[in-house]
Design a protein around this nucleic acid. Structure first.
Lengths: 177, 177
DNA sequence: GCTAAATATGCAAATAATTGCATATGCAGG
DNA sequence: CCTGCATATGCAATTATTTGCATATTTAGC
């Protein structure tokens, strides 16, 4: 199970609560591995049982209590062991493309609408990633190893969105003919 | 559940057996939606119960019997209804990228090896897609709607592999410094 | 003062997906 | 002749994921 590994990797950064992990998942590793908060919370319990993380309850007077998780030495070892294994082919679930394959049975305007939505999403994300890039990686030359991994992830994100935009535009053009 | 829809869309082409669906899944829609044969067989039973497909047992003397599935009118309607709904954000599970985020804890050579494997995969697939393109869509101008959907899917496949190759090369370069 | 959003965690039920196994035959290569 | 691959379908058990619900507080906007 790889969700646990995605969580471990995120915890390398610093100790975090389930809630924080859920949010960071949406911006960093989350681009490559999505999970709902329910999944994250229950996975964290299992990981603590295994000893890959340790938990620390923090009582807060004003807000609900927090449980801060820290990666353990065993957790770091688990990451290293897992990293050396061959990765399974990435799993893909692209509904929009399946719908596109139904063109001929499904009317063009229906597909066109979906493509326009998708295009807008890509543009938003690209702007987002570019902002992060400008803020966090102004000069790409001088990066620590740790930063370099994240930098490259962001680079792929940017390339992916650019490709998505180009393709959506091509598809809309092709459909309008 | 969208696997059923992916199967329905594939059946638009022609009646097929579970085995054939499994194989075609690997080359066409399968680029956007993967499923194991067990999943496909059990899903087909459920779809037949719902009336979205009809089944036809064909006894074969020499080989195991086949069950040929045909999409029904109800199945076509189900596709149209589903196509008009907003698509959920594509689910992503990219282990390699999660591993990359662990750079600093995981040694560079480990990651480099993974990237090289990935690069080789991208190149193979790209060659594959280009072959299909040359064989099936020699002149992209004159396509029926049905073909156009598939053509665009292939175009995205090609763009995606190209992007993957460029990025892997950039990543390997960045890591070697 | 009311409403909504953000903070913070979790259970329970239902669905989906993976993994391991089982069966049976034909054909090609060594 | 033996091995492995392709054909062809499926059950059972486990694991992963989604969906719906539940609770409780703070802060910001109207």
């Amino acid at each position: 199970m790889a969700l646990s590994h995605a969580l471990l990797v995120t915890l390398l950064d610093k100790p975090q609560t389930g809630y924080e992990l859920g949010k960071r998942f949406d911006r960093t590793v989350g681009f490559f591995w999505r999970a709902s908060h329910q999944q994250i919370y229950s996975e964290l319990h299992r990981m603590a049982d295994k000893g890959h993380i340790s938990s620390n309850k923090v009582a807060q007077a004003d807000r609900p209590n927090r449980i801060v998780y820290t990666i353990t030495e065993a957790g770091r070892e688990a990451i290293q062991h897992w990293a050396a294994l061959d990765s399974p082919a990435p799993s893909v679930k692209e509904e929009l493309l399946v719908k596109l394959f139904a063109l001929g049975t499904v009317e063009k305007p229906v597909i066109t609408r979906l493509l326009e939505n998708r295009l807008a999403q890509h543009r938003e994300r690209l702007a987002d990633y570019r902002r992060v890039m400008a803020e966090h990686y102004p000069q790409a030359e001088k990066l620590s190893d740790r930063q370099r991994g994240r930098y490259l992830g962001l680079r792929l994100g940017i390339r992916t969105e650019e490709t998505g935009i180009d393709w959506c535009e091509e598809a809309l053009q092709t459909l309008s003919k």
